[in-house]
Design a binder for these strands. Structure first.
Lengths: 224, 224
DNA sequence: TGCCAACCGGACGAGATCGTCCAATTGAGC
DNA sequence: GCTCAATTGGACGATCTCGTCCGGTTGGCA
């Protein structure tokens, strides 16, 4: 019970300069990823941040860790959108806003789509608890919207993942084409409405919603 | 008027062994691209084909040329689907089959989606003539389907590109998930029907259809 | 002010891919 | 069978990225 010698307050237990560099790195990472894609060399990020590669690697041992930290704020927004959707008295409006919010995020934040799918196959991680919570929330929202008669009865929760991944692919292929993205969102939302259910759909995907990066992964560490 | 010395018949003006190697390379490329993605090292393709790298580079100077040649057969099928769609007495059935055919191709032929989008920004090339023809054909199909009252009036030809690119992104993110792909196709087709037009859509994308790799680029050179 | 642990950053070796060059081989007409 | 040119294949140098190592620096408490 002696230790904790020069451990200081920097909110993460980091020294002041270390914390400063951490923020710089995240900011640089967002800029570089947006500009050169998610596969940009780590050294580029380090240079832009004005730090050495070692500093970068010490703070974020893998590229994946960096990517996730860099877009934690955006993932947070998605998670918050789910909470707000659930709070909306009109379940369809909640559903619609949730979908539009996430798609807008994918559309506006260059680099985020790649991060979104990169964070995707994370299903077996520690945050499973939070993810399950998000999944249950969304299922609840879907049930309410169906009961209200606004969402088609054969909508399956995994369809959200299908829709989001499609949109993700679209904005990746056509970065900057807002019109295309908005058209797709409109088409999909209309086809999710109860009135659109004219013909039966094929069987839904077995895809688990738990793998969707919709849940906040602990307290947000993202900083502007 | 003396030349043409030992120029021989190999359909491409290639020597018999050269033509044989060409086929081997294309076959190997399809296999490797399907297995390791479109960014697989050229050397891997060469090794699989049982030829040296130089042979590969001489025949296909760039990776792009190889990719396009490897999937020329699939692109051909897409182009043929357009012709058949136009020939169908029921324009909506033609439209539907066209869309389903292309999506099935993207879904079943691993590696093809990547090739599809890779072939995308090719608008300014020599084949512009053929592309324009394909564009006109599709516009004709759309007009007929609208006149018949089966396609929604506010459908814009560029929506085909939007839909195809989205689907492309989906199957890239979830290779092997047939159900997801089929669900998206069903949703999109239903939302394209005239009866689905309940609310106005946002403005269409300025995206030119000419850039869609729907047209055959000259006589097919693809071989099994 | 002084001390020490934590932190910093650039150099560095390993590994991978690219695209070219050249000597040896091989196909096809004569 | 012979000749010649087209074709072949692997070696090679250039370029790039990764992730670690280590000597020097700095922050914060005493």
């Amino acid at each position: 019970m002696v230790g904790e010698s020069s451990r200081i307050a920097g909110r993460n237990g980091l020294r002041a300069d270390a914390e400063r560099n951490r923020r710089r790195i995240l900011s640089a990472a967002r800029a570089v990823f947006a500009e050169h894609g998610i596969d940009a060399p780590m050294a580029t990020v380090a240079r832009r941040a004005g730090v050495g590669v070692a500093t970068l690697y010490r703070r974020f041992p893998t590229r994946d860790a960096l990517v996730r930290a860099a877009f934690a704020h955006q993932l947070d927004t998605c998670a918050r959108a789910l909470t707000e959707a659930l709070a909306d008295p009109d379940p369809w409006r909640g559903f619609q806003r949730l979908f539009e919010t996430i798609c807008a995020m994918q559309r506006e934040e260059r680099g985020f789509p790649a991060a979104f799918v990169a964070a995707f196959p994370d299903s077996s991680r520690e945050h499973a608890r939070v993810r399950e919570r998000a999944e249950r929330d969304f299922v609840t929202l879907v049930r309410r919207a169906k009961t209200a008669g606004s969402l088609r009865a054969d909508f399956h929760p995994s369809d959200l993942a299908v829709a989001l991944l499609s949109h993700c692919g679209l904005v990746t292929a056509l970065p900057g084409d807002r019109a295309a993205s908005q058209r797709l969102v409109a088409y999909l939302l209309q086809s999710f409405r109860a009135e659109a259910a004219r013909e039966p759909l094929p069987a839904p995907s077995a895809l688990s919603l738990r793998s969707l990066p919709l849940a906040a992964e602990g307290p947000s560490l993202a900083l502007s």
